[in-house]
Amino acid sequence: MSETVLRAGAPVRPVALAEVEQPAVRLTHVSKWFDTAGRRQTVLDDISLTVGRGEFVCVLGASGCGKSTLLNLVAGLDRPSTGAIEVTGGRRPALMFQDHALFPWLTAGRNIELALRLRGVPRRERPEEARRLLELVRLKDAYGKRIHELSGGMRQRVALARALAQEGDVLLMDEPFAALDAITRDVLHEELTRIWSENKLSVVFVTHNVREAVRLGERVVLLSSRPGRIAREWTDSDLPEAALTARVTDALREEIRRHGRR
């Protein structure tokens, strides 16, 4: 069990050389603040994080600690106040939102085809590719369906297929399963694990659910709140899932408790 309290920029664990040379995502001393009504609120403070190629990293943190802000920065939807973010691979990272964000004026298939089109896939190849992606998330019958005809779980699978259509090396996921019931979430965890391992994706998965983070992540990064800093991280271990979950839960609680004491 390697549990490390992090100093910014410090190597977390012995990583393979190839990974050091070409990580999928590298954040160096990234901070983000918002100036609202004359007051400066620092949301992210000096975050340094490296995501290796093909790695599955879960970022865990309490509500409002800046998880979405972090993903928005990596996705290029917003700029860091200071620090640098590098995403290798050329293609922009795909981002899956908590709220599926599928376009309701298009069918499920067309949503995916739009992503393909914006990626520059020729028109003739799009329908076939869209069907292949829907099959990947086991939804081949959903091609002609309107979004409102699909259940929450199905929508998230279509959203995953649309994100995969971007063919970025990096997939960012912002609590994509938070609104789903436990059974559906369970199934989607398996689905995601399968797709991740088959497609050699680098995933940054944000959640406030410890069990989900421990279950999915090869590495779990705990963010503190106000400001969001990397508090700790856990890498792959031989510890049983339940025991690791308990540990991470304790750490998260400790983080939250600190705010009560202040």
Partner: peptide, 26 residues
């Protein structure tokens, strides 16, 4: 499927999923 916990059995999730979809669909 290889996961962080080494090799793990994946339950026959396709069937579960198909059932969920059928139940969920309008």
């Amino acid at each position: 499927v290889a996961t962080r916990k080494g090799v793990r059995e994946v339950r026959d999730s396709a069937d579960v999923e198909a059932g969920l979809d059928a139940l969920d669909s309008a």
